[in-house]
Nucleic acid binder design. Sequence first.
DNA 1: TAATCTTTGTTTATTCAGTAGACAAACTTT
DNA 2: AAAGTTTGTCTACTGAATAAACAAAGATTA
Lengths: 397, 397
Amino acid sequence: MSGDMKGQTWNQHVVKKENKTLVLQTIKEKAPISRASIAQVTGLNKGTVSSLVSELIDEDFIHESGTGESSGGRRPVMLLLNEKAGFTISVDLGVNKILGVMTDISGNRIMEKEINVDDNSVYNVSDDLFSLIDHLKEQAPSSRYGIIGIGVAVPGVVTTEGEILLAPNLGWKKVQLKDMLYERYKLPIIVENEANAGAYGEFIYGAGQNSKELIYISASIGIGVGLILDGKLYKGLRGFSGEFGHMTIEKDGLACRCGNRGCWELYASENALLEASEQHGLKNHSITDLVTKAEMRDTNALKVFEQIGDYLGVGITNIIHIFNPEQVIIGGSLAEGIPLLLPSIKKRIKQNAIGFNLDDVHLNEANLNKYSVVLGITAFNIENFFRSTVKEVSNGV
Amino acid sequence: MSGDMKGQTWNQHVVKKENKTLVLQTIKEKAPISRASIAQVTGLNKGTVSSLVSELIDEDFIHESGTGESSGGRRPVMLLLNEKAGFTISVDLGVNKILGVMTDISGNRIMEKEINVDDNSVYNVSDDLFSLIDHLKEQAPSSRYGIIGIGVAVPGVVTTEGEILLAPNLGWKKVQLKDMLYERYKLPIIVENEANAGAYGEFIYGAGQNSKELIYISASIGIGVGLILDGKLYKGLRGFSGEFGHMTIEKDGLACRCGNRGCWELYASENALLEASEQHGLKNHSITDLVTKAEMRDTNALKVFEQIGDYLGVGITNIIHIFNPEQVIIGGSLAEGIPLLLPSIKKRIKQNAIGFNLDDVHLNEANLNKYSVVLGITAFNIENFFRSTVKEVSNGV
DNA sequence: TAATCTTTGTTTATTCAGTAGACAAACTTT
DNA sequence: AAAGTTTGTCTACTGAATAAACAAAGATTA
């Protein structure tokens, strides 16, 4: 009816929609909060807030929760997000295991299930994935909005349309996972790259909550990077940004299966760590083994971590130069070794990064641990839900 | 009075402001255009468009320009941007010369002046800069809004507040150029990094007009990069993004004066080109000399361009992997040699870049030539003007 | 304890921008 | 000349925000 191609048109419906979202957002962030405080924080008129709040209550998005402390006058009625108004199902589809969680619309984990996978064929994995989702879905408490969305993170190249073009470590090519899931569940579906999801998870619920410019490094078998720029996930033209694993840090260095040479992930990933440890006489060790050895002051293990940390530092220095970020967060399976890697990472960065950019940046470990990725998916699910639902309900009823 | 900290509040004033801007934008882009067409394109009601248009005419932003062709009914009255409602002064402050242009608010160049500089001290340059601006300012035609803004691009690190922290090739540190200019002219001032300005210039007026994701490489003495992401200039936390010149492409490679090692600009800038040519026995040649020689099939000169192009390709491959851009534009003084560099750049990229990302990207030469940077500044000036003025006038009168 | 002051939240009258639709003007087609 | 189209303006209406009055419920003070 309106809002064509470019530059949406503004009318009072849009105004109401935006203000309602603003009120809801304020409650989400500052709950418990009174109507009066919302008016003060947002700058909206008290009457406007009252009327929007009563709509939100009717729609079960929020509810009152008794009175708060008086500050010298009538005691305020506090408002809370109605966390149990709906639930999400979010899955981290890894190479060796699949982690699925159910959360409420506030992002609290209600239930989770993890299964191991050895056969990575599309057929087998999708079977496992479906039964995992079915299992979570069956046990969802009843609620006004039910399951509000299902999302899956995959270690691969995903288009903005949710098609998996390539997932090398799964051996997948051109898999229409989003369509498959929609076909089966008829619910809003999200399929997203694993590094992007991890970045968003840490941004919304984790170490990056107060940074608008943050770079999340997912260092596992390979390296993927998720970019939060200007407070939004940056995906590039078709969704393929963040292929930092294939950034050349040694011109004409080692040949990568991607066709490039000297790729960062050949020197600084979990794979690189394991290879380096073999070269130092530590064969068939897992990361956990190596961490244990290094903690017991094994010289070879220590050397390996120092070497990998140094290479990580080279790439991170590049990241700092390129983005002038506020925060760089390291996640993925390699994060297990962070305490051992950090000294040499920091040494390299301090030596090599330009002062101005270095001064601005904080280097941190992901603090949601194995949940970074699933919770990113959860955040996508919830955002999607509020964006589409808050408005339609208010117009529709 | 409203619209506090986060999440602006929406009311009818905002609606009008946005719709008015939308109408103006539509006229800028599609002029000459009738009221009826604007209504159709924007989705706004015919009456709304009529009333907004009549305000814009009162404010001299646009004017009617006779009737257009009938399409089977009453002939439309065509609307045009009133290009001469105001003028900008935009300056590209280079190491060897200063280029200043005056443009109208449509970005047409009205006048220009270029001067050479040999003493780069702040004192001397600011003197030259002031007299250059004075000269342009004096000759500005009289107009409703006069000089709407003054902007300067500098080859250095500029904060979001317009302070020049460091301009190594000028030998400047901590120069409050924005304040100095405001003190003198009491007009809206912009001070911006040269690569950022170049990127914006090509984005608005040049080769990148239809790309929302574009990377501009300013290859001169060093390398700077301007990032247009999601249709906006990306500046990072404090404005220091795009320091691609100091991206490591050879770990522990050549030492750079920035403190890092193996920086891209040591291998792929104008400086690198000149050094490489000396190593090939071509001493004291300018780029122009080398281009001439190479065009006459001088083997050494050809080799030099091939080598530098190859290194450029390495960095551009990284850029393609990192951003999944729609377009990469090469500008700066090195662009003079583009026809000679392109073959080896393209060869490297085709060999090394990941297919998905490679398929999306177009590699182009800047097409505004020496005006990329000044016109970027012009675009900033104009945007600033419309953002602040369109609205205040309509509320204020 | 009573009177007064504060804060919270609702209600009412008002303002203002966009919309739909009628209408007039100007043109084309039959 | 009559009928149909397109453009642009005008009028009545709608709906959302606002300011201000008001009611409710508490704190403070004498």
